[in-house]
Design a protein around this nucleic acid. Structure first.
Lengths: 188, 188
DNA sequence: GTCTATAAACGGATAGAC
DNA sequence: GTCTATCCGTTTATAGAC
């Protein structure tokens, strides 16, 4: 069982390149050179570049969702939130990459409609998960959330996505957990 | 005095295109078609595409700084903050564009060093201004800022940048003022 | 499945006429 | 300053051999 199929390698490199340089910042040639194949071989798996993009986005969404849902549901809200933020921080520290959805959302006007919808789905799913955790936190009293939890969840996810961007910009991964300060009643 | 010089038009379209599609998402041809000139004329003003980019980024920084510093320094901290967020919201509502610095930071790896530094400058200046306002707010008691003001300022600017991205993604400008909820003690 | 070969358009960029 | 003309590498994509 070799998971390092050509198709897998293509998608891995494509995802990384989007996160580093954006959708318009890489070409089939880049990927072909990295893997050691010809660009025509990539077209065999993904006839158009947009096909590759959509496949990468959907795979990213599925994997991220699985990772989020792997967070122990029996945890307290503040522990869930810490685990969630730590997930982002760990991913960033290992790869120096921002979220795929954020990278693509920045160049929204140059993306096909189905990809835009897929990006909305990623944002929506994360905001929804966060809103539920915040609501739990309010119930428990483990989190300090002023105002509407839905609003706070959207704001928090935006902050997290934005902090990944600045963590890379300033080469400082500590920025990723900055948003915890406001919502955690206990100091770290 | 016609400010609609060719140079001005080139820079206007370049800025808009970066904000909409990213640096790698437009070409001299796009701009030339929009203005009704030839690409060689653009090269007369900006020999390389990177020259154009740097000029656009620096102009954007200068104008944004001027607008921020035009906020009445005698205002209370919460009024300053509302004015600052409203500035973002108004700009977005008129143009449907995210911040130039955020658009570029998303494709960081494909940008020249001097542009990266300029983007850092934009982030740094905004974070610094916000930190001072938050500090004033803590002194006055007009803002609710738990923990370190520097950390809160960075987190807040990240949230603001991220909210512009989602405002565009979901076509909903209300998201931009979401972050005010957490920090304003008075409800809107 | 991967290759060679090729097409056709696009990209940034330059030289030189007007 | 703007144009025409041109260069040359890149990019996406296809046809067909192996």
């Amino acid at each position: 069982m070799n998971t390092e199929t050509t198709r897998t390698q293509i998608m891995q490199h494509a995802q990384r390149l989007v996160q580093e340089r954006g959708y318009n910042g890489f070409s089939y040639r880049d990927i072909s050179a990295l893997i050691g194949i010809k660009t025509s071989s990539i077209h065999y798996y993904f006839p158009q570049k947009e096909d590759l993009l959509l496949a990468v986005v959907q795979q990213y969404h599925a994997r991220w969702q699985a990772a989020v849902q792997a967070i122990d549901t029996s945890l307290s809200a503040d522990a869930k939130l810490r685990a969630y933020v730590e997930m982002h921080r760990q991913t960033f520290c290992n790869t120096e990459r921002i979220c795929l959805a954020a990278a693509l959302a920045a160049e929204l006007a140059s993306l096909p409609t189905d990809v835009r919808r897929a990006i909305q789905d990623i944002y929506g799913a994360n905001e929804e998960w966060l809103a539920q955790v915040l609501e739990q936190g309010v119930r428990e009293g483990s989190l300090c959330v002023p105002g509407d939890v839905g609003t706070a969840a959207r704001s928090m996810f935006a902050a997290l996505q934005g902090s990944l961007v600045t963590a890379r910009l300033f080469n400082n991964s500590n920025r990723i957990k900055d948003l915890l300060q406001a919502v955690l009643t206990l100091r770290e």
